[in-house]
């Protein structure tokens, strides 16, 4: 390879910038067309149910199992730290706040990107490479309406539910470890939790977070599938991109949302 002159480097930077902006633009048009475009989609409910099943129900197992373990680990770690200050009763509020504000939405979004997001990308990419999308279009059915829209909505609906289930299961796992194993008094465990957790500030903010994450992760996953190069190599690259982009977007957005919701300014 020949060395590049500074001007060529600037040109490369410019080209990369243009690429980023065009793909942002294309994905936005794609999203708007899929969600709000008019078209024939008579059996939308049926399609949505099918997708809710494959996106939501199929992710339930990994969410529940991870939730229990994360709650239990939080409980163990929190207890050993709090016990040093003689306030092990506060372990309940610590678990609940951590799960509701942060771990519930974030870990669910990351797991969702890995489990459902990659599957969405691969599925749509595969449909594209086997010409099923073109075939739909030629039959006179808009693939944006028939394939993309139900998957987007299924993602938007599923993830907040999954995040709430994650938090509940995590708190349950944490309470089990704290109360039955570490011997924290049950009454103070729950009353401390109830006193410090606010429904509007903590629960609702957590749900808002996971709605935002749901939007971003599903959008990235579905667009990557729809936009991928229709070869097996292209699909595998798109799947990797989905997981990487979605995870980064979730973590970055989490910082911004946390600063807006819980930061003092």
């Amino acid at each position: 390879m020949r060395r590049k002159s500074p001007l060529e480097r600037v040109q490369l930077l410019g080209r990369a910038g243009i690429d980023v902006v065009t793909s942002l633009g294309r994905s936005t048009i794609f999203l708007l067309a899929a969600l709000f475009g008019r078209g024939t989609s008579g059996k939308f409910t049926q399609l949505l149910i099918k997708q809710l099943y494959s996106v939501g129900v199929m992710s339930l197992a990994i969410i529940v199992v991870s939730g229990v373990f994360i709650g239990m680990v939080l409980s163990l770690q929190g207890f050993s730290i709090l016990a040093a200050y003689g306030s092990e009763q506060a372990v309940g509020q610590m678990i609940a706040l951590t799960l509701l504000r942060e771990l519930g939405p974030v870990v669910t979004a990351l797991l969702f990107a890995g489990r459902a997001g990659s599957a969405l990308t691969a599925e749509i990419g595969n449909m594209k490479s086997t010409e099923q999308l073109s075939s739909l279009a030629m039959i006179g059915v808009d693939p944006l309406k028939y394939i993309v829209a139900p998957r987007l909505w299924a993602g938007f609906i599923s993830m907040p539910l999954l995040a709430m289930i994650f938090s509940v299961v995590g708190i349950w796992g944490g309470s089990m470890v704290a109360i039955d194993w570490l011997g924290v008094y049950e009454g103070s465990f729950w009353s401390n939790m109830q006193n410090s957790v606010s429904f509007t500030d903590d629960v609702v903010n957590g749900i808002i977070k996971s709605i935002v994450f749901a939007f971003v992760v599903t959008w990235i996953a579905v667009f990557q599938g729809y936009d991928c190069e229709p070869t097996s190599e292209g699909i595998s690259r798109a799947t990797t991109r989905t997981v990487v982009y979605a995870s980064l977007a979730v973590l970055g957005l989490d910082f911004i949302l946390t600063a807006l919701m819980f930061g003092d300014f």
Binding site: A96, L100, P160, M164, S167, V168, Q194, V197, F199, V203
Partner: peptide
């Protein structure tokens, strides 16, 4: 999902 929301509201945030 709805049960989880109810638990969060009643049991966790009191």
């Amino acid at each position: 999902g709805m049960l989880a929301l109810m638990l969060l509201a009643l049991r966790v945030s009191g």
